[in-house]
């Protein structure tokens, strides 16, 4: 059973094509992240699901019904905005009741019970009578979340809800979102530009680039096995090094070779090397020149020149190499991702 099906969605603003044929199906209870750089069309896609934007072509189905031409107020959805969009003239409880009141859900008593339950879920029962402006950013964010889940929508839409919080609060909220989702299991579409958020929260990550889906896969898979150069560079800042593949060996531009896992076809390719997967060796391996060392507290980041290519490598704080000196580095063959081209 799928709660949300998008079929061949395109969207143009004037001559600018923002979405170029998006197909996406989200199963009931699934938590899916739309991940991408700003301008990739992810927010437009979310707004199309909400009904706040129309489509140029394509079809939106929620719980099996075609809602492409329905306005947002007639769709069974809830959306949480980046700015939270709390109604400033209403108390916290009135804000949370708002969707129930607008959709005429149940009697006054039933609404009270639902509001109370939603506020309990986000642990804000004690602030029910406050005005939104009296709350901290984190608390406002919880109110917005309570307001989004109170009507038990078919699809919950989250538009970068954590981006206005500071780092510590954001991590707390991530944990809380996971817990709440596990408990009430709403079908959720989550827009973010933060790869950590996408990886840690979702059942499935949909990576978007220039109005199209680049890759969609569970978090571990998309991180460990990015399908394209864009995916590997967007997720986890991989270094891309061109090479020639022949007989289980990759030859770099300067003639150095390194072993790779079997199965890659011969020819030109790009090696995607994650910065945390590169090891410093005392001898052997590949020669690279140290350009800069950056102290990060628990670790060092080294910027190296490898066969004319600038790469970034993370090393333990104990590794001390001076800029200008030569480093020996190695990468386990099964950690090298080989991309065509």
């Amino acid at each position: 059973m799928s709660d949300l099906t998008l079929t061949n969605i395109t969207k143009s603003f004037g001559k600018v094509e923002v979405l170029r044929g998006i197909d996406l199906t989200i199963r009931s209870g699934e938590f899916v992240s739309l991940l991408g750089a700003s301008g990739c069309g992810k927010t437009t896609l979310l707004r199309i699901v909400a009904g706040l934007e129309g489509v140029s072509t394509g079809k939106v189905e929620i719980a099996g019904a075609d809602v492409t031409d329905l306005p947002p107020e007639k769709r069974d959805i809830a959306m949480m905005f980046q700015s939270y969009a709390l109604l400033p003239h209403m108390s916290v409880a009135e804000n949370v009741r708002f969707p129930l009141r607008m959709r005429r859900v149940g009697t006054r008593e039933e609404q009270d019970a639902k509001v109370k339950a939603a506020l309990e879920t986000v642990q804000l029962t004690h602030l029910a009578d406050r005005a939104p402006r009296q709350l901290s950013g984190g608390q406002q964010q919880r109110v917005a979340l309570a307001r989004a889940i109170v009507s038990n929508p078919k699809v919950l839409l989250l538009d970068e809800p954590l981006s206005n919080l500071d780092a510590r609060l954001r991590e707390e909220m991530q944990v809380e979102l996971i817990e709440i989702h596990r408990r009430i299991g709403l079908t959720t579409l989550f827009v973010t530009h933060d790869q950590d958020e996408a990886l840690s929260l979702s059942d499935r990550v949909v990576l978007m680039n220039a109005g199209a889906i680049e890759q969609e896969a569970p978090p571990r898979e998309i991180y460990d096995a990015p399908a394209t150069a864009y995916a590997s560079s967007f997720l986890g800042a991989a270094n891309l090094v061109p090479a020639r593949i022949a007989g289980g060996l990759a030859t770099l531009a300067d003639g150095q070779t390194l072993p790779i896992a079997s199965g890659a076809p011969d020819g030109n390719a790009t090696l995607a090397l994650r910065q945390e997967n590169v090891d410093f060796l005392s001898e052997g391996g590949l020669a690279a020149k140290v350009i800069t060392r950056v102290y990060l507290g628990s670790r060092h980041r080294y910027i190296l020149d490898l066969a004319g290519q600038t790469i970034s490598v993370l090393a333990p704080a104990s590794v001390m190499l001076e800029p200008g000196s030569e480093a020996r580095i190695g990468i386990a063959p099964d950690r090298i991702r080989i991309l065509p081209g």
Binding site: A50, G51, L52, P71, P72, E73, K74, R75, I77, A78, M79, F81, Q82, S83, Y84, A85, L86, L87, P88, H89, F98, P99, M102, R103, R147, S151, L157
Partner: peptide, 30 residues
Amino acid sequence: ERDPFLEEAARTMGATRLKRLWFVTLPQCR
């Protein structure tokens, strides 16, 4: 000065045209 997304948020919560005017826009203008 208002949050420009208030009206859209109200739409996603099921508020129709007149209800948005009464519950969202007018209180903002007050």
